[in-house]
Design a protein around this nucleic acid. Structure first.
Lengths: 91, 91
DNA sequence: TCTTATACCGGTATTAGTATCACGGGCATG
DNA sequence: CATGCCCGTGATACTAATACCGGTATAAGA
């Protein structure tokens, strides 16, 4: 095995991550944010829907800048469960 | 064109990004930091040397946590030139 | 009703990130 | 000098991210 396939946990984390972005987007359209971040609308959609669970760092950074949110908060929120409790990382 | 190849600018940004990580690592070994972040040492090496110029977001987040550095500062530092001046993003 | 805009979905193509394997350099110890 | 150990590196394999295309559904407006 050369590259570990994404675990279910990572996919769930991707879904939570996408939900946060969608929530932060609010009323604004996908194309608007995607254009502001310099990524394609399809990419933004895949990230928001969790179909791209581990996006590139600078892609996320650009989106966060377009949405005016903190990367640290974003990463912190995704390491916690939906109920807000801290979630253990897989070994 | 299906996926845009990385531009020279993006590769240079990756080199700066890696330099920052290596600098932050200091005396500690690659394996130590990689193990703490939960990634392979080779991956950390590629990121540090700039051969993986656009690493995954959660990979960077884990490394930043292991190095105790801020993601926002990291992203901000990479959007600036080596001299510290702000650098224009590509269109 | 017809058009338009937005978002979702499936498929496809291509590049890039990540992990495993194998190798060489430095350094200590026998 | 030989041996083993740790670190970093090069090559290779495989999966995932990104982008483009076409189609579909829904809602708003002319």
């Amino acid at each position: 095995m050369v590259r570990t396939p994404l675990t279910p946990w990572e996919r769930q984390r991707g879904e939570r991550f996408g939900s946060l972005l969608r929530q932060a987007r609010g009323e604004r359209s996908m194309v608007e944010i995607a254009a502001a971040a310099g990524v394609s609308a399809e990419t933004l959609r895949k990230i928001e829907t969790g179909r791209a669970p581990t996006p590139a760092f600078f892609t996320v950074a650009a989106l966060a800048a377009a949405l005016e949110m903190s990367l640290d908060e974003l990463a912190g929120a995704c390491s916690k469960g939906a109920d807000g409790r801290a979630q253990a990382l897989p070994v």
